[in-house]
C-alpha cells in the first residue's frame, strides 16, 4: 500500500486536488482510502464516501495540534486502510502551526498552495513546503501568467528540486501529473514510521494553561518583544 499525506493552508484546495487525483487513481485500478484530520470541523469524508464509495474517515485533533495528531494516528490509519483493502491511503491534514512537518518518512508528502495567496506564501509556510516531496499550485486560472511564473519560482526557491505541479483543480487541469506522481510512489514499509524533520522546542507555561500575558509571568521557553527566545525556569 502507498500513503500520501497532503497538507496546505485552509482553502488552498487540498480536498479538490485529492478528489481529482482519486478519480484518476480509481480509473487506473487503484483503491484509495481517505482520512481527513482537522481541528474542529470537517465534512470531506462524506464527500469521498458518497462520490467514490471508498472507505473514508475523519479525525478531529481538538486539543491536540493537528500535525501532532497526524503523527499520533498515522500507524492506526495505515492499519485501518490495510484492513479496508486499500492500495493507497490519502491523508489530508490542516497542518496549521507551520513549525512541524505534517509529513512522515516513507509516505509521499504533497504540499498544496493556492496561487492567489500572495507571492511570499512559499517563504511563510516552512516545513510544510520545504520537507514535501511535491508541491501543487492551485487556482492558476485566477492569476496572470507573469504572476504564475514568479509564484512558481518562489516555491522552487523554498523547496529546491521537488516537482511543482500547476493546476486548476476545479476543472482537473494539471492533475494527471499529480496522479502519476502518486502512482510512482513506493509502497510504505512495515508499521513503524517517523515524522519528517524535528518538532520545535516550544514548551512554555501557556501550553499548560497559564493565561496571564507577559513573559515575566511564564516559565519554560519564553520571549520578550525585542529580544530572542530564551529559557526561563528553575
Amino acid at each position: 500500500m502507498k500513503a500520501v499525506i497532503c497538507a496546505g493552508p485552509s482553502t488552498a484546495g487540498k480536498t479538490t486536488v485529492l478528489r481529482q487525483a482519486a478519480r484518476r487513481l480509481i480509473k487506473a485500478g487503484m483503491k484509495p482510502a481517505y482520512l481527513k484530520i482537522d481541528v474542529q470541523y470537517a465534512s470531506e469524508d462524506a464527500i469521498f464516501a458518497s462520490e467514490f464509495g471508498i472507505p473514508a474517515k475523519k479525525v478531529f485533533s481538538g486539543e491536540l495540534c493537528p500535525d501532532h495528531c497526524n503523527v499520533m494516528v498515522f500507524s492506526d490509519a495505515v492499519a485501518w486502510a490495510q484492513e479496508c483493502g486499500a492500495s493507497v491511503l490519502m491523508l489530508e491534514t490542516a497542518g496549521l502551526c507551520l513549525r512541524c512537518s505534517p509529513y512522515v518518512e516513507g509516505a509521499l508528502g504533497i504540499a498544496v498552495l493556492e496561487a492567489t495567496a500572495g507571492m511570499n506564501l512559499p517563504m511563510k509556510i516552512g516545513p510544510m513546503l520545504t520537507l514535501a516531496d511535491a508541491a501543487v499550485i492551485t487556482k492558476i486560472d485566477l492569476i496572470s501568467q507573469a504572476e504564475r511564473e514568479v509564484f512558481r519560482a518562489g516555491v522552487m526557491k523554498a523547496a529546491p528540486g521537488i516537482p511543482v505541479f500547476e493546476s486548476n483543480a476545479l476543472y482537473g487541469i494539471g492533475i494527471d501529473a499529480v496522479a502519476a506522481r502518486i502512482t510512482a510512489a513506493p509502497d510504505i514499509q512495515g508499521i513503524d514510521f517517523k515524522m519528517r524533520g524535528s518538532p520545535p522546542v516550544g514548551t512554555c507555561t501557556v501550553c499548560v494553561g497559564r493565561k496571564e500575558t507577559g513573559w515575566q509571568k511564564h516559565f519554560g521557553v519564553v520571549r520578550p518583544l525585542d529580544n530572542g527566545i530564551f529559557y526561563r525556569g528553575e
Binding site: G118, M119, I143, S144, Q145, A146, E147, V150, R152, A153
Partner: peptide
C-alpha cells in the same frame, strides 16, 4: 511556464501580487 513559448493575456487580469511593480518585474 518559464519555458512555455506562449504568453496568454486573458480578459480577466487583476494583479493579486502584493509587490511593487519594479520588484515584481525584477523577479
Amino acid at each position: 511556464p518559464a519555458r512555455n513559448p506562449v504568453a496568454f493575456i486573458t480578459q480577466h487580469t487583476n494583479f493579486l501580487s502584493d509587490l511593487p511593480v519594479f520588484e515584481f518585474l525584477k523577479i
